[in-house]
Design a protein around this nucleic acid. Structure first.
Length: 594
DNA sequence: GAGTTTGAAACT
DNA sequence: CAGTTTCAAACTC
């Protein structure tokens, strides 16, 4: 791909070996190969994304209500919005909030699945504001409900018929699945690529966990038991066993999936969101869903969505996405019963949407450094995990409270931090609109001895230069600083070296192992392909010997590198022709295609 | 790996 | 708000 690039002899031979392996692969019987491909489950190329986790009470399968049983159990939370464009405000679940910006005119609602629901997985609830349309919910059999995107948009009772016709297909879905007429449920907005929902069984837990998984590529299968499901591409739910040591796997969802239901962004990071129901519930933001960040899930970690006045004491707790991946199996009960924070004192935390100027997805996609806290119990900002809104996981900390076992303490600590500094959990490194060059430390550093050229300095650590707001002394971390340039060059060179060495090592080992593992002769019959068994270990070694011989000859005769490369490649071509020739001859001669 | 240095966070 | 203490990471040996 790069004609101007000079290839060393070693690389040349390496390429030849690679070609040899490739040839060998392609000699494998076509049917054999294709069968392996078809057996392979579809794998998403997208990073894991959490869309939502619904926890219901443990249920036996019989306990699922029939579609006709419109239970008064309200488990899906309805968030509404009064106007399409609103300033930062207090959100009251149950208020009218527009979640479909185009044509629902503020009367649609987003049902947010609760942490727990009594005995059933309730997909939709209506917080009716009309006495003629009492609050209702549709309780679905789990295997049916699982096929639905949990975020739903409903028409409120006061929505006009004209507005009600915004999404006929999805409304039909609701009607069919839930057995409830369109007058009650206007719209369920499915994901553009519907999710695969998996049940997660947690031993010892009373709760039933569900996760939504959508593969962005690959085939999909019809949903089991989902005859009423109008979307055939929804995958069947699969039970997943979990133990305490296993992280809850992260569902995958296409990035565009949530776009349809993204309500207007909540402007303030310190909003109070109130609910109108009783038990505390969880809203788990999807770190990898930037589209959903502006809505409820963009609320900062630790936020408790306080109940609305006069409507009980249930609230939501917004947790950072890593929470989901680190969550221990037994923690939900503690959380759901948590009532540490009343409506009068809702905890408001700031979203740590980015770390050091990186987006959340970027930041969370890389492995986090384990902390080593010994005295802070990981409940102070000294602890990087805590400061980043994450639970400690695989850390080396002592007496750690930054976990679900100490959730109440943790929430208190969050509150204390925010009392001291309302933006304590906001990213310190702001990303400028024009790219990284505009990134800068929000507070500036205060370095005195390091010259801002060591990682003690938060600016230098974030690979940004100090700015006018820094109060550092003897700063050398500025654009024209020769010391800084030298350091940067050294760091870059070191990084490149490490990468090259790692890549070379990986490539070589994979080539060797690849060749060695494919040298077992085997009889492949039929398929019209040459038997790949001719590329045996001996043949590969002999080929390599031939190539090396050419390389040595070229060196001995002081040939220019281009000539040497040509000789090697020509020799490789000869080797291949011989292999193919013998293979074809053997196939003709041998009655059993050996 | 132990000890030191450093600067942010926490505290007064 | 300034000064001091605490803390954990970065760094050095």
């Amino acid at each position: 791909t790069n004609p101007g690039r000079t290839i060393s002899l070693k690389e040349n031979i390496s390429l030849c070996i690679e070609l040899l392996a490739f040839l060998k692969c392609n000699l494998i019987s076509c049917s054999h190969f294709s069968s392996q491909i078809t057996k392979k489950p579809p794998v998403s190329t997208a990073g894991p994304m959490i869309t939502k986790l619904i926890i219901t009470k443990a249920l036996n399968n019989k306990g699922l209500s029939s579609p006709a049983s419109v239970a008064p159990v309200v488990t899906g939370r309805v968030v509404t919005q009064s106007t399409p464009v609103t300033p930062p405000r207090t959100l009251t679940i149950g208020e009218t909030v527009s979640t479909v910006p185009q044509n629902t005119s503020g009367n649609s609602k987003v049902a947010i699945s609760p942490l727990k629901s009594p005995s059933k997985l309730t997909v939709v609830s209506v917080a009716s504001q009309s006495p003629n349309s009492p609050q209702k919910s549709v309780t679905l059999p789990l295997n049916v409900a699982l096929g639905q995107q949990i975020l739903t948009v409903q028409q409120s009772a006061t929505t006009s018929p004209a507005k009600a016709g915004t999404s006929q297909s999805t409304a039909q879905t609701v009607k069919t699945v839930g057995g409830v007429g369109p007058s009650q449920f206007k719209t369920i907005i499915p994901l553009t690529t519907p999710p695969n929902v998996q049940q997660i069984q947690v031993p010892g837990s009373r709760f039933h966990y569900v996760r939504l998984v959508t593969a962005t590529t690959g085939s999909t299968t019809a949903q089991s038991g989902g005859s009423t499901n109008t979307n055939p591409s929804i995958q069947s739910a699969k039970p997943v066993m979990m133990n305490a040591a296993v992280r809850m796997s992260v569902p995958i969802i296409p990035a565009q999936s949530i776009k349809q239901v993204v309500p207007k962004p909540l402007m303030s990071a310190a909003q109070v969101v109130t609910t109108s129901q009783t038990p505390q519930r969880l809203i788990m933001p999807a770190t990898h869903l930037p589209q959903i960040q502006p809505n409820l899930t963009s609320l900062p970690p630790g936020t408790v969505l306080a109940p609305a006045h006069g409507s009980g004491n249930m609230g939501y707790a917004v947790l950072p996405a890593p929470y989901v991946t680190q969550i221990p199996q037994s923690a939900f009960v503690t959380l759901t019963s948590s009532s540490t924070f009343s409506t009068a004192t809702p905890i408001q935390t700031q979203a740590r949407l980015s770390l050091n100027g990186l987006s959340t997805s970027e930041a969370t996609s890389r492995p986090r450094k384990p902390c080593n806290c010994t005295r802070s119990q990981c409940l102070k900002l000294y602890c990087d995990c805590f400061a980043n809104g994450e639970f400690c996981n695989n850390c080396n900390c002592v007496n750690c409270f930054n976990n679900l076992d100490h959730e109440s303490e943790r929430l208190k600590a969050i509150k204390a931090c925010l009392d001291r500094n309302p933006v304590a959990f906001k990213p310190k490194i702001g990303k400028g609109k024009q790219g990284e060059s505009d990134r800068r430390h929000s507070k500036g550093c205060n370095c005195k001895k390091s010259g801002c050229l060591k990682n003690y300095c938060e600016c230098y650590e974030a690979k940004i230069m100090c700015s006018s707001i820094c109060k550092c002394m003897g700063c050398k971390n500025f654009e024209e600083s020769p010391e800084r340039k030298t350091l940067m060059h050294l760091a870059d060179a070191a990084e490149v070296r490490v990468q090259q060495q790692t890549a070379a090592k990986t490539k070589l080992s994979s080539q060797i192992s690849d060749l060695l593992t494919r040298t077992t002769p085997a009889v492949i019959s039929g398929g019209g392909k040459l038997p790949y068994t001719f590329v045996t270990k001996e043949v590969a070694e002999a080929t390599c010997d031939c190539l090396l011989e050419q390389a040595e000859q070229a060196e001995l005769t002081n040939q220019p590198q281009a000539v040497a490369e040509r000789l090697i490649l020509e020799e490789f071509g000869r080797c291949l022709r011989r292999i193919i020739s013998f293979a074809g001859k053997a196939k003709t001669d041998c009655p059993i295609n050996c």
